[in-house]
Design a protein around this nucleic acid. Structure first.
Lengths: 139, 139
DNA sequence: TCCTACATTGGACATTGTCTAAGTCAAGAA
DNA sequence: TTCTTGACTTAGACAATGTCCAATGTAGGA
């Protein structure tokens, strides 16, 4: 994740304490926090950081292609730092846990030409749903 | 869609003017209205229908499996009456137009066993994004 | 026709996200 | 090092979407 900060500075990003903290919070595998969760964790390290700054910073990281925005449930969007490795998501339909998963083949090729209605299709996102082992055990 | 009303009555659904109007609004192909759009259209036929009733009715139709809830963009959820034919969605990334599309093969089979993390996977939703012909022409 | 359980209503409230004006500060210049 | 400046941050108001509740209305069976 320190790579990230260097990459961003090279791109002219001004490096502030707030941005550093947001980037640190997002560091890790299978991280998919909401903006509120990022704010709560950032506040532990930098108590005066504001909600607006968290939203701004997350938005910038998304625009720069360093973080993915994931909306699995129509509720709050989640932010996924694993933007440089193509992947999809597996979501527990009870507790909401999210895992990054890798598929066989390219899902883009599953959409036949006549089903494209003349669109220039450029992206695809796949979300699997089911019960995670913990929730399945207590049901 | 009149089939729908009969099916629901058979299941003990009380048939009110409000529910009938919501069901009528959702009748059609490639229909993906937000709750607000459903409310606006319902109001044209039944001016006194309330927002709460539209939300309630949509929620019931979803629970009963007659309508699908689609959240393609982290904004308002959309409601898709085409619940009895398995399909996925193609979304214009500029104007938001949505088309129902049908895939080659079953996307569930693209998720390898070791990538399931012990989940009991039961559903998959696939969303394609790109420019629709109209937006591509004006860009 | 009458009853009553279920449905509807309006409005308050909750959650999530956006915007703005004023103050603050990172980083290059001198 | 200190100065300068434009970019960054902040608090809080506002917007969009959705949920909840108590009071009122009504579909459909008796």
């Amino acid at each position: 994740m320190s790579d990230l900060l260097e990459r961003l500075r090279d791109r002219g990003w001004r490096l502030t304490a707030q941005r550093r903290v947001v980037a640190e919070v997002l560091d890790g595998d299978h991280v998919h926090y909401t903006a509120d969760e990022v704010h709560a964790r950032a506040t532990e390290r930098l108590p005066e950081i504001s909600r607006a700054t968290v939203y701004n910073t997350l938005g910038e990281l998304v625009s720069l292609g360093e973080v993915l925005e994931v909306s699995t449930d129509g509720r709050a969007k989640r932010y996924d730092p694993n933007a440089h490795h193509d992947h999809q998501h597996l979501v527990c339909s009870r507790c909401g846990t999210i895992r990054d998963v890798h598929l066989h083949g390219d899902p883009l090729s599953a959409l036949p030409e006549p089903e494209r209605y003349g669109f220039q299709v450029s992206e695809v996102s796949v979300t699997y749903r089911g019960l995670c082992p913990t929730c399945a055990a207590t049901s």
